Amino acid sequence: MSGSALPNAFGTPVLESVMRATPEDFRVDELDGFQAHGEGEHLLLTIEKRGLNTTDVARRLARWAGIGEVGIGYAGMKDRHAVTTQRFSVHLPKRVAPALEALQESASGEGTLKVVHQHWHNRKLPRGALAGNRFTLTLRQVRGEREAIAARLQQIAQRGIPNWFGEQRFGRGGGNVAQALAMFAGRRVKREQRSMLLSAARSQLFNQVLTRRVEAGCWDQPMEGEVWMLAGSRSVFGPEAWSEALAERLASFDIHPSGPLWGEGELRSAHACAALELDAVSDAASLKLRQGLEQAELKQERRALRLRPEQFAWQWLAEDVLELRFALPPGAYATAVLHELGQVGEAGRDERGEAQADAR
């Protein structure tokens, strides 16, 4: 389900703008999930890159170190058309690293990279080993009423936003869902593509459930039979009777309503909540996605329906230039924040011929 098809939680969009006029307009800094051990055979490098994606840097690191790409680790994927900072690990059993100057000079064309920090660690950096991402986004050619934009930004800061899977999860033109259906129908795909398509199928079903909750005005409110997710973790509890204690925890963003990440097994939700979830994914295409995910032996899991951007702040850099600053947890999309503001196009997107990956 593409961003343009998703409903808005706070009503009519309040602006139109473009972003990524330059890579500096989209800055992402990875938040470390742990401290380096200080010893071991893996060199942890914090690298600032421009005009390079994560795979580009991993390949350069492998060539620089004289090892296979399997010896390179990173926690998350970062976009090419941005300035991003993230960690990589390089397996160097002899603890001898080539000169960093050779690595920094290896980037070609517009792409550049710079090593910001280096530490030794005792194991390879695994996927997902980050605390989140900090974003600084610059929107240009902003059109809209200043008062309406300010009011919408305050709503986002105070209430949070629906925790959509961004259009990046669904591929160019949303084609990953169609490919997932073809895979479930018997089409053979490569192993790495299979994982991507399974994720797209799950994300599609989740977004359909979240769409129903947004349309019903209860994406950040309880339903009978609700399953709650603890903020900052994947731990869930419930259903349980609504209480003043739950109301206080919901208001303080300690817990969030949750929706299904589909797989085999029974839904954990019950009553009105379960009925809404099942109805949202009862069309023919959704039934095929559900069956495919169950046959792939994925287990039923949950994802928070509500997302709160942390340290959310903004300022006008010029009459039509708005800067946004916020941090998001792993797996959340900056485009979900932009969606609640309005239509934000990407400068030069048609020329690039691709949708850009969000940081996660």
Score class of each variant (00 low, 15 high):
2 S>Q: 13
8 N>A: 13
9 A>D: 01
9 A>M: 05
11 G>V: 11
13 P>N: 02
13 P>W: 03
18 V>P: 00
20 R>Y: 09
26 F>K: 09
27 R>P: 04
29 D>C: 10
31 L>T: 11
34 F>M: 09
38 G>Q: 14
38 G>C: 15
39 E>G: 08
42 H>N: 13
50 R>T: 14
52 L>C: 09
53 N>P: 09
57 V>R: 02
57 V>G: 10
57 V>P: 08
61 L>V: 02
65 A>I: 02
65 A>P: 01
66 G>W: 07
67 I>R: 14
69 E>C: 06
70 V>N: 06
71 G>T: 00
73 G>R: 03
73 G>D: 02
74 Y>V: 07
75 A>L: 03
77 M>L: 14
81 H>N: 12
85 T>N: 09
91 H>Q: 10
93 P>C: 01
97 A>Y: 04
104 Q>E: 15
104 Q>V: 05
109 G>D: 12
110 E>V: 07
113 L>F: 04
120 W>C: 01
121 H>Q: 04
123 R>Y: 09
124 K>L: 03
127 R>F: 02
130 L>N: 12
135 F>T: 03
135 F>C: 07
138 T>E: 10
140 R>E: 10
141 Q>C: 11
142 V>K: 05
142 V>M: 15
144 G>Y: 10
146 R>K: 15
150 A>K: 10
150 A>G: 09
152 R>A: 14
154 Q>W: 14
154 Q>H: 13
157 A>F: 03
158 Q>P: 06
158 Q>S: 14
159 R>Q: 15
160 G>L: 07
161 I>E: 01
161 I>R: 00
170 F>G: 03
172 R>H: 05
177 V>Y: 00
179 Q>M: 11
182 A>E: 15
186 G>C: 08
193 Q>D: 02
193 Q>A: 03
196 M>L: 13
200 A>V: 00
201 A>L: 00
205 L>P: 01
207 N>I: 02
209 V>I: 08
210 L>S: 00
210 L>P: 00
216 A>L: 12
216 A>M: 12
217 G>K: 15
220 D>H: 14
225 G>R: 03
225 G>E: 06
231 A>N: 11
234 R>Q: 15
242 W>R: 06
243 S>P: 00
251 A>N: 06
251 A>K: 11
255 I>M: 07
258 S>M: 07
260 P>S: 09
264 E>Y: 11
266 E>C: 08
266 E>R: 13
266 E>Y: 03
270 A>V: 04
270 A>S: 15
276 L>Q: 15
277 E>R: 02
279 D>W: 08
287 L>M: 15
292 G>Q: 12
293 L>M: 12
296 A>D: 07
297 E>K: 11
297 E>M: 14
304 A>L: 06
306 R>K: 10
309 P>R: 05
310 E>H: 08
313 A>W: 01
320 D>R: 13
322 L>Y: 02
324 L>K: 14
325 R>I: 12
327 A>D: 15
329 P>S: 15
341 L>K: 10
344 V>T: 14
344 V>H: 04
345 G>L: 13
347 A>W: 13
348 G>K: 04
350 D>W: 08
352 R>F: 07
352 R>V: 03
352 R>Q: 11
354 E>N: 13
355 A>F: 03
357 A>L: 07
358 D>Y: 12
